[in-house]
């Protein structure tokens, strides 16, 4: 290759200069911490004057023997396995309803979308009230049918499910928007052509709409995976991970380990697990679904 001309080299410098401020912050608060997290997971937690020292895989041995970790990991996986498909499925249903002919469409769309703009921490307070044993709305309705009181958030078997309901309620309307955008970009001629062919609505959905929505489904579900591990605000308000860690999620456990027990090395080790899990799920999903995506 010949030496780049002067103007070309000036363009390089301009490009780099424009990028510098953003890249400095990006490296400082995303890439560097991601690397130091892995590094720190091989050291002990510095306490007082005792400095952190290299301990090899000991933190990981602790991790494997930590019952709470396994419980929290299984909670997180259950949480993802339930909330992702349900909220994405509901989002699609909502989008199809709101996209079609429907009386009072404006209100319906508002109702679906409203939870999205509210702080999760605030809506968790409202849901707390729903779940209050005896007085809460759910128990009042059950009471009207003569059913007994239930301690939704205090029962280890029900706490995680109760937390999941809030996440689904909050997320579905958000994902609906993306489906709605995709639905509105489908050419109406397709529907007319299908109607002439005599295809039923269900056939049309299965053969035309759904395949055309695959890129959106991919996008939405990758987002849903990330959100399911990232959004833990409601756990703080509703259960604080209890009872007995029954509703604790991975990021919440990381928070507790780092900022309640101040065991930062172990918290780093847990963060590594979260990073690996997230990357594996997002990439796996991408390759799995990508094959079935029909790009236009």
């Amino acid at each position: 290759m010949t030496r780049p001309s002067l103007t070309l080299r000036r363009e390089w410098v301009h490009g780099w200069l424009l990028l510098t401020p953003a890249l400095v912050l990006l490296f400082a608060f995303t890439h560097l911490p991601a690397v130091t997290t892995i590094w720190d997971s091989f050291f002990s937690t510095p306490r007082g004057r005792r400095e952190a020292k290299f301990v090899g895989l000991r933190n990981y041995e602790t991790l494997l023997a930590d019952d709470t970790f396994w419980q929290v990991l299984s909670n997180s996986l259950w949480y993802a396995a339930v909330t992702i498909p349900v909220s994405v499925g509901l989002a699609l249903l909502m989008a199809l309803w709101v996209d079609g002919r429907l009386s009072g469409r404006g209100f319906v769309r508002l109702a679906y979308f409203a939870p999205t703009v509210l702080p999760l921490i605030a809506v968790a307070n409202i849901w707390m009230f729903f779940y209050t044993p005896g007085f809460g709305l759910i128990d009042q309705i059950r009471g009207a049918f003569g059913l007994p009181e239930v301690n939704w958030l205090g029962n280890p078997d029900l706490a995680l499910g109760s937390v999941m309901v809030v996440a689904i309620w909050k997320e579905a309307g958000f994902f609906m928007i993306f489906y709605l955008a995709a639905l509105q970009s489908i050419p109406p001629q397709l529907r007319e052509a299908a109607a002439i062919e005599g295809a039923s609505r269900w056939t049309f959905f299965r053969r035309v709409t759904f395949p055309l929505l695959m890129p959106t489904t991919l996008f939405v579900s990758v987002n849903a995976v990330i959100n399911s591990f990232r959004m833990v605000d409601h756990v703080f308000v509703m259960t604080e991970g209890g009872p007995d860690n029954a509703s604790s999620l991975l990021l919440f456990y990381i928070y507790e380990t780092a900022f309640k027990y101040w065991d930062t090395a172990y918290a780093s080790t847990l963060t590594v697990v979260l990073l690996v899990l997230l990357s594996a799920l997002a990439l796996g999903q991408f390759f799995l679904l990508d094959k079935r995506v029909h790009y236009r």
Binding site: L32, A34, T271
Partner: peptide
């Protein structure tokens, strides 16, 4: 994918 929300300990 790797949001700052997750890297609370290091940040």
């Amino acid at each position: 994918l790797v949001m700052p929300d997750i890297l609370i300990v290091e940040n």
